[in-house]
């Protein structure tokens, strides 16, 4: 019935660094309100795709749209609809948690009392209300990630991109972050693109894109990918599709 554009649409995107092709005709979409996993080894092209979606690099071949807004032509409109959590830590460690959030609000043109109100609400939602005035340096790795997620949602985007968000976290923190983001999808209808090389983060009902050496090898729900590749689980499906041996849950 409705023809509302998807949260994220990647259409025929290619990108190369000199002679090296990092992405080769990649196309997929992330529907609204879905948890989608971009699964691939290190070097598969995930980071390049991420850099293109966030306008760090100009998209030269193909098109990327966020809720129908072209990232190249309407970058301002596209970027205000997306929240981003980068793989590297991007908080200012010597500033307080709330100062970090207020800075981010300013980057979206939100200032003054409204910024403070949103920052407090975001920390409440992340379960970190008591830490607002702590120095960020004193938070644990998992708490920092939660702050980064809260920060990415401050400007109320409907799409959240996370680049390997669980790298460097212990098992417990990893599970908590994953559960937290899944909860955001279930309860608030957020669309999420979760980039990872860790197969155990994939649920059968998730939408999955398998990226390997710059090409998409499979697109669909995890269950459908498993079924059509005749595998027992997503790890095995990944091995069959990529021809890469994986060991104990991780593919990278």
């Amino acid at each position: 019935m409705t023809h509302a554009p998807p949260a994220l649409r990647i259409a025929h995107v290619s990108h190369s660094y000199g002679a090296r092709q990092a992405l080769d005709d990649v196309s997929f979409c992330v529907e609204r309100g879905r948890f989608a996993v971009l699964l691939g080894l290190n070097g598969a092209g995930k980071s390049t795709l991420f850099a293109l979606v966030t306008r760090l690099y100009a998209t030269r071949d193909g098109a990327i749209e966020i809720f129908g807004c072209d990232v190249a032509r309407e970058s301002s409109e596209a970027l205000r609809r997306v929240g981003v959590v980068f793989q590297a830590r991007t908080l200012d460690l010597e500033l307080s948690v709330v100062q970090n959030l207020v800075y981010h609000a300013a980057l979206h043109g939100v200032g003054g009392t409204e910024a403070k109100r949103r920052a407090e609400a975001a920390l409440q939602r992340a379960g970190l209300a008591g830490r607002a005035h702590d120095k960020t340096r004193n938070l644990s790795g998992g708490q920092m990630r939660r702050v980064e997620i809260a920060r990415a949602l401050l400007h109320e985007p409907r799409l959240l991109l996370l680049d390997e968000p669980t790298v460097g976290l212990d098992i417990k923190a990893r599970a908590e972050i994953l559960a937290h983001v899944r909860d955001l999808v279930d309860r608030e209808g957020l669309a999420v693109l979760w980039t990872t090389h860790l197969i155990d983060e994939v649920k059968e009902s998730d939408a999955v894109v398998i990226l390997h050496e710059g090409k998409t090898l499979a697109i669909g729900t995890a269950a459908a990918i498993i079924a059509s590749s005749g595998a027992q689980n997503i790890g095995e499906a990944f091995e069959r599709l990529t021809g890469v041996e994986t060991a104990n849950g991780g593919v990278g």
């Binding site: 989608a36 999955v208 459908a224």
Partner: peptide, 8 residues
């Protein structure tokens, strides 16, 4: 019909 739409 699946949520990651490949149709472009």
């Amino acid at each position: 019909g699946f949520p990651v739409c490949a149709s472009d």
